[in-house]
Design a protein around this nucleic acid. Structure first.
Lengths: 165, 165
DNA sequence: CCATTTTATTAAACCTGTTTAACGATTTGG
DNA sequence: CCAAATCGTTAAACAGGTTTAATAAAATGG
């Protein structure tokens, strides 16, 4: 089922039930939460990825996060009860679900490792390398938040990099 | 299959194939890697948990980490090919595997959130609260590493907390 | 097209943790 | 039981962030 979002509109807000998986066709979704009054970005979803508030989704808890379009965005939704039904019915799909969850785990695990072992500067350069397009479509203060920095901090890192080559 | 480890012995070392899951009966296992010459602790496993180098295990890659006993430890091993065989044979077990992987994902995800939103001091206090026993059995420099700190840094945090109540 | 809002940068003061080194205290093994 | 190694704390100099505030630049919308 197709859903079209204008910039600033949300798929999920804190407190809501998370009963869908999504596939992002075009646009960009900011997965973030409000922590002590400030935005804290968890992830940016762009073209051709599956996503949802996976934490709330798997735990069957109300969302604590936002899924918000940072630009006009088109997603397709997949109902959770349908997914669950398929898993029950088919061993193959259950297996696919397990392997997908493995992927999610591995991605999150490597992120923990980066947070523990890499500097902010290294993480910034990595993001620049891995997702250069992001910097053209998402404001820098959100990218700063994603990197666990303030806008001022990210500005300083950029300045330092220019200075030192 | 029961395996007894003396303090300092390892279940897994970098480069080795990870072909087992483990259940920790008694003792403590330090899951760590060497990053730029220094120990970087990922997790401590203690009584009654399942564990392995899950990253290498699921990706079928050689280990990059150590699983090392920080004290005399007893674990039971479960062979990976047996596990895989069970998953193929039983939809129920496949499902259990998926849900277990969900758990692993959720734990890792909440850790990313803590790394992004909590201070070192808050993470230290949380560890003290959640796993007080750990501080009696693991040297402080390993706990510092687990928290992403140097031993000196952790010492300072403790000092500050004593001072300010 | 202008006024307003949003975003990025800079500076200054500050805070927290690092690095290096020294010093005790404790543990360990021969 | 002693010698050696390990471990925790401290100090001093430093590095890399934050906070606050001011300013400049760019985007937005009426």
């Amino acid at each position: 089922k197709k859903v079209v979002l204008k910039k600033g509109e949300t798929l999920i807000r804190p407190g809501e039930k998370v009963c869908n998986f999504y596939y992002l066709n075009t646009g960009c979704i900011n997965y973030y939460k409000i922590v002590e009054g400030a935005v804290s970005v968890l992830e940016f979803y762009t073209e051709d990825v599956f996503f949802t508030d996976l934490y709330a989704y798997v735990l069957n808890k109300p969302a604590t996060s936002f899924l918000e379009a940072t630009e006009d965005t088109v997603v397709y939704t997949i109902n959770k009860t349908d997914v669950e039904h398929c898993f029950r019915k088919s061993h193959q799909l259950e297996r696919f679900g397990r392997l997908s969850m493995q992927d999610a785990f591995v991605r999150t695990f490597t992120r923990v490792e980066r947070l523990n072992n890499k500097t902010n500067e290294e993480r910034y350069l990595r993001l620049l390398r891995k997702r250069p397009g992001l910097f053209q479509r998402v404001p820098q203060y959100l990218i700063a938040s994603y990197l666990g920095l303030t806008p001022v901090g990210l500005s300083k890192i950029k300045k330092r990099l220019v200075k030192n080559g």
